[in-house]
Design a protein around this nucleic acid. Structure first.
Lengths: 227, 227
DNA sequence: ACCACCCATAATGTCGACAATCTACAATCT
DNA sequence: AGATTGTAGATTGTCGACATTATGGGTGGT
């Protein structure tokens, strides 16, 4: 089943990305170039370029002369990434704090309430989508291209590796309240406070996901030794 | 003159990087794969990988079906990059603010004074080197791998594209004073103040470099129309 | 003289094959 | 038996050539 034409590399990137979303690649697993090449009916050259791209975005890790492996973030890496995102997004939103209109804030509030509702109704997909939209809107006033770039990079990585957790780490009420808190901080036009709120938002989320992962592992494999 | 063995890609990356440092590639210029291949006596495959790597670090820009071009940052991009670096480094240093020993602070002060001296004596190379070292030391207490990664990425890009300016945008006394100011902020153990100081440090630098570039262009080409 | 179209040229995108290197298993030695 | 070394298979790194696409100049028409 060969791919549509345009430039193979991008297709391959998307193919692997989707594969990771559908859990067809497990963390730490090795990705074989020749395997993909046969699977997609193309040569190894575009495959290699795609893999290099994914290494660049942090989704794969590369060992010279050995191969590419699906990134498995340690707890430390995970929390670091969430912290970094908090720092960047905090700055981004704070920088544009004055350009938010009351109408936008109302929209954001509405979205926060919707998120609570979706969470209560177990509509995880809708919850995740609107969560993404919420943060994009918050972020939309940032004019700093470099900050946007880094944040998108982090967002991509974290979204892919941990979007399954998002709906479970907070209770529906918590989800709604935490996002309303962000909006209030924007309303107060206090950049320092706002940055602090956003940073702790992401820091807490990172921590909770790590905790949940740990308990998951324990319940799945029985209580193993903690190396 | 083929290259030493180990893995060609890295050698090619270094080759192009050095070439940019020595101004052998002008901003906006197109990089031809085949030229490099002949120049280094190897095939195009590792060249392509190296170019893709440089695109990732922001040193080159890539247009599909067209080629790779030496990045030429607009004034906006340049300032954005300096701001982003200020945000990241500010957080990094603030995060480790409590782990600085008095001995380290003394070393940093000594370095700041040396920088002033080097600037006065016109030792630009030494000034740049010790400046790098200063910021590395400030940065060394940051345990967040993600933040370190982004900052190094920015540092690489900015260093390469603008290290020629560093020695000229501030007077010797300003150089020394501004860095002493940073150290004082660390001493005060006030993370918020520290972040603010570091941010404005980079913001000012970005602004000054942009200004200097503009006057350079005007004096070199005569007063041209401003498109 | 100017514009549109076509073609030659050259550069990138892709390919299949070979070379260098790593991994795993088996044979040998202590 | 355990450890070490050697070898075979598989995988990545590199190569040269072909296919496809952008670019520039020239030709013809208005």
């Amino acid at each position: 089943m060969p791919i549509e034409r345009s430039t193979y590399k991008d297709h391959v990137v998307k193919y692997i990305y989707d594969g990771m979303r559908e859990n067809r690649y497990k963390a730490g697993e090795k990705i074989l170039e020749s395997h993909l090449a046969k699977e997609l009916g193309i040569s190894r050259a575009p495959i290699r370029e795609a893999l290099a791209d994914l290494v660049r975005s942090g989704l794969l890790e590369y060992k010279p002369q050995v191969g590419n492996f699906v990134t498995s973030l340690s707890s430390i890496d995970l929390i670091d990434s969430y912290i970094a995102r908090g720092v960047l997004e905090g700055f981004a939103v704070a920088q544009g704090i004055d350009s938010f209109t009351e109408e936008e804030l109302k929209q954001l509030e509405e979205m926060a309430h919707k998120m609570g509702t979706f969470a209560r109704d177990g509509k995880h997909k809708a919850l995740i989508d609107i969560g993404q939209e919420f943060h994009e809107k918050l972020f939309s006033h940032c004019t700093n291209g470099q900050v946007v770039l880094f944040t998108e990079q982090l967002s991509l990585k974290l979204h892919l590796l941990f979007y399954k957790h998002w709906a479970r780490v907070y209770s529906p009420k918590e989800i709604c309240d935490r996002h309303l808190e962000l909006i209030d901080a924007v309303r107060k036009k206090d950049p320092v406070l706002l940055e602090q709120v956003i940073r702790s938002h992401y820091f807490d989320t990172g921590l909770k996901i790590v905790e949940q992962e740990k308990t998951n592992i324990n319940t799945m494999k029985g209580i193993t030794d903690d190396n």
